[in-house]
Design a protein around this nucleic acid. Structure first.
Lengths: 362, 362
DNA sequence: CTGAAAGCGCTAACAC
DNA sequence: GTGTTAGCGCTTTCAG
């Protein structure tokens, strides 16, 4: 009756409608025990009649909990990132939280301002795939008591909770695998050399190369846009002609494959190729793409778990770091052909994955 | 000095620190003209000294604008969806908005509750890729004065702003293209027959088949999980052996390709294949995947544009519907081989895209 | 130009 | 069990 015109009904409207006090209505809304059943029913009815929707913003202002967490990533196009987000989202939802996603485009500047914006919106927690390895541009948010979890990249000198994968070891394994094929001039191709992941993967690559008494040769571009056919021709296929390629991340693999194609070279066939990061169609490519597969789902879940554990538990737990194993998924682009006997062992004792039934042709 | 312990500084703290009134501080914060320069400086300094961050929630409560929009999609794994989100995000950011992303997993139930949650958080606008064609479960949010834009799917009986693509026409074109190759038993494979997009695409397919005096034969599964190798063998390759496949969406293409592979059949090579929706590596597959490519970037931008036009403009504009053209991208999996003369015309007069330089081998 | 007072929609303390 | 009184941190009247 006495509803303020043109405005969504408030709890006060509900209380009036149900002829109870504001606080009683509030108690019903929050499922408090201390209300007579009779009144609960009345309030519920009033809510339904009015089409009442609680204003979470008002509630947040009082409780100092927004029920939102933020996630900042570098590149929304990367399926790996998406899978992580998807998992985080799921965990968040099951905890009654929403997630605000922002993208830094790999630029620290943008990252900073996005985080700032999230903090102003009073997010309760933050998950970041840092755009750089630096700590300076992030420290301004530390003084606040908001929990932060980083994944993918590690931030130097911080002691934030973090979830990372076995970059170095997996890169070493992958390189070793190609070496076991007999390739000698395996070239590592990647982007953004300053990133933690790049550095680690390169280190793993170098280790395997050096151990085999081979000269490591990594070709990293500052930005993916530089990874063109022309560049490939000059840097990778030119004088020091590579006899195999180890691509260090998703975007570089995509670029390499395109570049090679433009040169009339079939990646993985004319020249062996192993990729750090898998693709949606990686298993149906011809030949199947051999990859180091990141445990993206697990990564997302663990990141979210760390965050929510801090959000629930009030104690001052020590910071935790989780290291997740990446998995070498051997298909064919690395030079493997499925012609071996059922019990034959693979180069470095890997297990064959039964992923390409038809590949038993040569 | 007199900062409340352990709490983020408020505007009141700033005012006290700067020895001005709360309102003056507020004016400075909002860049109001009517403040003496001298005071502006003092307030700014106080803000910096205190490390003040405005609380957007409190502001929102008063202004009734949360500065957030929501977006609800069916499947975060779909690259098409991701591209749309990415664009929306960008537009939102340039308007000073954040976007809250939620996923309905294709279930109307979930969709409803996610929207409810967003509305409670006072989002200013909503972009939806509806999980169904129905209107009932969405109408509860209409009474509110929050602008809604739908994309991808169309909702029957609503007059919401919407952005869709030429599903029917493009499907007809694609089918016709395969028919022009001489295939007679083109089978359409898809998922979730009740969806608007599925129905439209099937309609386009049927049109081309019927016009050619051929019997349409569409095989749709209720859920993608049913699209297995076994199912393919029984339904598509069995008695009425298909001589070409038209896959109606991203997920079905992925499933079809995997299923065929498991049967020892190379999709696009042993059996021609055309896909509605492109893939990250669609152009480097062997053979290259011929696809109907959705203008996902444009779709995202237009959806966001419609929404923000409503958010800014206060007038009661009539609802708008934008129809965007999908593009037939011919590579090779449809049966095309790049052996024709430079000036030869393609089957239905399409333009060859110069995407696969090396394919000039048969 | 500036400031005091009121209040956005809700919850946290206390009383009753 | 219930209602009253204060606010949360900010913006909006509306006087000066």
């Amino acid at each position: 009756m006495t509803i303020r015109k043109q405005r969504a009904p408030t709890l006060e409207d509900v209380a009036r409608e149900a002829r109870v006090s504001l606080k009683t209505a509030s108690r019903v809304l929050n499922g408090s025990e201390n209300v007579r059943k009779e009144k609960v029913t009345k309030v519920r009815a009033a809510m339904a009649r009015l089409g009442y929707r609680p204003n979470e913003l008002a509630r947040s202002l009082m409780t100092r909990k927004s029920g939102a967490i933020g996630i900042v990533v570098a590149n929304l196009a990367n399926p790996f990132v998406i899978k992580v987000i998807k998992e985080v989202q799921e965990v968040a939802r099951s905890n009654g939280y929403v997630v605000i996603i922002t993208s830094s485009e790999g630029q620290p500047e943008v990252e900073r301002s996005e985080i700032e914006s999230l903090v102003r919106r009073q997010i309760d927690g933050l998950i970041i795939a840092p755009a750089t390895t630096g700590w300076k541009h992030l420290s301004p948010i530390l003084p606040m008591h908001i929990p932060v979890v980083t994944f993918d990249q590690l931030i130097r000198g911080s002691n934030l909770d973090s979830v990372i994968i076995t970059n170095r070891q997996s890169a070493a394994e992958a390189t070793q695998h190609m070496l076991d094929h007999g390739f000698r001039r395996v070239v590592a191709i990647g982007t953004r050399p300053h990133l933690y992941t790049s550095r680690e993967r390169v280190a793993g690559y170098r280790k395997s190369m050096t151990q085999a008494n081979l000269k490591p040769r990594e070709c990293l571009v500052a930005h993916e846009s530089l990874l063109t056919a022309k560049w490939l021709e000059a840097e990778v296929l030119g004088e020091h002609a590579a006899d195999a390629i180890f691509s260090l991340n998703w975007v570089s693999t995509q670029r390499v494959l395109r570049g090679l194609r433009d040169l009339g070279i079939r990646g993985g066939q004319d020249i062996p190729l192993l990729s750090f990061d898998d693709f949606d169609l990686g298993d149906v490519l011809t030949p199947g793409l051999s990859v180091v597969q990141q445990p993206s789902d697990l990564l997302g879940r663990e990141s979210a778990r760390l965050l929510f554990e801090r959000l629930k538990g009030d104690g001052v737990q020590p910071s935790r770091r989780i290291l997740l194993p990446a998995r070498l998924v051997i298909r064919e682009s690395c030079g493997c052909r499925l012609i071996m006997e059922p019990n034959a062992t693979l180069p470095s004792g890997l297990q064959r994955l039964p992923e390409r039934g038809h590949s038993r042709r040569i």
